[in-house]
Design a protein around this nucleic acid. Structure first.
Lengths: 196, 196
DNA sequence: AATTTATGCAACAGAGTGTTGCATAGTGAT
DNA sequence: ATCACTATGCAACACTCTGTTGCATAAATT
């Protein structure tokens, strides 16, 4: 009762080509016909696996946005940990195709539940890493347990995404440092309070 | 040497219909044919005005994203001013079609210079309002002139956008209050410093 | 070896994308 | 009022993408 190996084989082969087409030529170029030409798989077979363009796109989105397993650095101090983790996030936006695919997924997510799940799942994943960094800082006593960690996580992640995808401003190292400084400033509101 | 009134008339009529189609049925539904059906203007005429779908989309984007002239409240305190201004921004995301169109413009802006100009122009406009609020706070002496205002503006605006368009979480009044609190906390790092 | 099933092929209808040639009607100028 | 100009409307066209379907073939399961 094992699955026919031809199925997994064509799926893998087709999705690999889909991914390449999406990254090279954009969302609009990702059609059943294009994948057929790239792989030799017949168009009708592709339609049997993905009933329409949306399904093919979503499957490719999901493949690209598959969460990586980052083991975040949490040995402190907070500023260094954040710089390290957000640095990885920024690198992904700058140097991988995720920077150009993410906006497509986000745009699709307004009307497409599958795409919505892809992007929110991806972000939930990233958030958990940032959360681990903050939690470690709390446990070290570096920041108070009353710090608005969820808000801070949103600010930490939204900043780079907005700057890159909306403002189209470069995500430089110095910008990231200022961004992290600001977040730390929020996490440690009273810089030198002698009453404690 | 006046412009033929037919030109401006068809442009206006077509763009009004384009906007409606875009908002009602999404980007993909915005075609020359659809506008032709909605207006009675012939398809060939529409092609004479907008050479391809991209041009039609961009023109409609620009029409929707046309900057409004908000006269921001700047009489302080900072928290109230920010709450007021970001409240307008949040309302636009929640209750106008901008919430569903913005992601399309943003997605298009990665590969389309016209769309990029629309979205960056729109944001530059919004940023100037937030900037006015911060500048007023500086002049009142409520925050120091060394506060990283540009960073704060980015954080202030990116938060609602990211939460709505990427996370698909609701932009509630209480969330906005927390968001503004966080920003004020950044602008006023030392909460009660008796040395001044 | 027999059965089941995934694939390939070819043809099809439909819609969207642009283009073109020609007729028509509204516009500005004399 | 007549003229030239030009925006528009109409119809036809080629092309591509979108899906679907029926049938033959090849591979896998039993």
């Amino acid at each position: 009762m094992v699955e026919d190996p031809r199925i997994t084989q064509t799926r893998e082969k087709a999705l690999a080509a889909s991914q390449e087409i999406l990254l090279e030529n954009g969302v609009l170029a990702l059609t059943h016909g294009a994948v057929s030409n790239a792989t030799g798989i017949s168009r009708s077979t592709l339609y049997r696996h993905w009933t329409d363009v949306k399904a093919l796109r979503d499957a490719t989105f999901r493949r690209i946005a598959t969460p990586q397993n980052i083991a975040p650095k949490t040995d402190g101090p907070l500023r260094a940990d954040l710089l390290w983790l957000l640095g990885i996030l920024v690198d992904a936006l700058n140097e991988t195709p995720w920077g150009s695919v993410a906006p497509q997924v986000i745009a699709a997510s307004t009307s497409d539940d599958e795409a919505k799940q892809v992007i929110t799942g991806f972000m939930t994943d990233r958030f958990s890493f940032v959360n681990a960094v903050f939690q470690a800082a709390v446990e070290r006593g570096e920041i108070g347990s009353s710090a608005p960690i969820n808000q801070l996580i949103e600010v930490a992640v939204s900043g780079p995404y907005f700057r890159k995808l909306v403002l189209h401003e470069p995500l430089t190292k110095s910008w990231l440092e200022q961004h992290v400084d600001l977040i730390c400033r929020m996490a440690l509101p009273v810089s030198n309070n002698p009453s404690e």
